[in-house]
């Protein structure tokens, strides 16, 4: 198959478990290049477990995850690590390394994997911090900046190596509405400027409708994926009451 015509990520018959307890069965979806793909679902439905499987932190119970047609979990660890270098991940809390300054956090992946000189790394760090609106914060430690800034710094680190795919775990959680909105705008800008494919795991409806071009909805009760498509289409066209309830915060009951 031609590499450009196949999806960037393809999930096939994926089963997820948490400590041997099954949380999700038979997940099947594809993410195309340039998509902002949203994994939606209520708390405890397995969204974060799915993210861990996608970014290589947790082996799936069953099934395949293919990146550009390559079966991720069938690779040996070294090849998997190489594939993981294409990813950028923004964790829910930002997950900045607390013993390093903001600048050192962003510089670390560059020092490890790029061939840039020390001066170039410094310039690159400045650029990435400027992209997320944190110019001048390189010398600060994570404990000295606000929660929203930590998230943006985490994003600067996630995009340090110009990843092909950026994963966001609950990007707007814990942020005030305005900061959440700014982060959503940043996600859109990054997709357009870096040309990256973006996967967002969230249950924040405002974010889902603001950024999502495609989505799947996971349901904890049936342990399965109950909807797939653009969030706006799902809202107007879905006839599944669970989907309507989720997308309208339960204000509409949906049609049976």
């Amino acid at each position: 198959m031609d590499k450009t015509s196949q999806p960037v990520i393809r999930v096939r018959d994926l089963d997820l478990s948490y400590d041997d307890y099954p949380v999700m069965r038979d997940l099947n979806f594809s993410v195309n290049k340039g998509d902002i793909f949203v994994v939606m679902g209520g708390s405890g439905c397995g969204k974060s477990t799915l993210l861990k499987v996608l970014i290589g932190l947790k082996e799936p119970a069953k099934g395949e995850v293919l990146y550009d047609g390559v079966n991720f979990w069938a690779q040996d660890e070294t090849s998997r690590q190489d594939m993981m270098r294409r990813f950028g991940v923004l964790y829910q809390s930002g997950a900045l390394w607390s013993s390093l300054t903001v600048g050192e956090n962003v510089a670390l992946p560059l020092q490890l994997y790029s061939k840039l000189s020390a001066g170039q790394v410094e310039e690159m760090v400045e650029l990435k911090l400027a992209l997320v609106g944190l110019s001048g914060y390189a010398e600060f430690y994570p404990a000295q900046i606000s929660g929203g800034m930590r998230k943006r710094a985490g994003l600067a680190r996630a995009i340090a190596l110009d990843p092909d795919i950026i994963f966001f775990d609950e990007p707007s959680s814990g942020l005030d509405p305005l900061s959440g909105r700014l982060l959503d705008d940043l996600i859109l800008q990054l997709r357009d400027t870096l040309g990256a494919t973006i996967v967002v795991v969230t249950h924040e409806l405002a974010s889902i409708f603001a950024v999502g071009t495609n989505a799947v909805l996971l349901d904890a009760e049936s342990k399965s994926m109950i909807a797939a498509g653009s969030p706006k289409d799902l809202l107007t066209n879905s006839r599944d009451p669970r989907v309507i309830q989720f997308l309208t915060r339960g204000q509409k009951q949906g049609v049976n």
């Binding site: 993981m84 900045l96 490890l112 680190r157 775990d169």
Partner: peptide, 10 residues
């Protein structure tokens, strides 16, 4: 998640 962040960076 700081340890996860290290692992994803290899």
């Amino acid at each position: 998640d700081e340890i996860d962040a290290l692992q994803t960076l290899g």
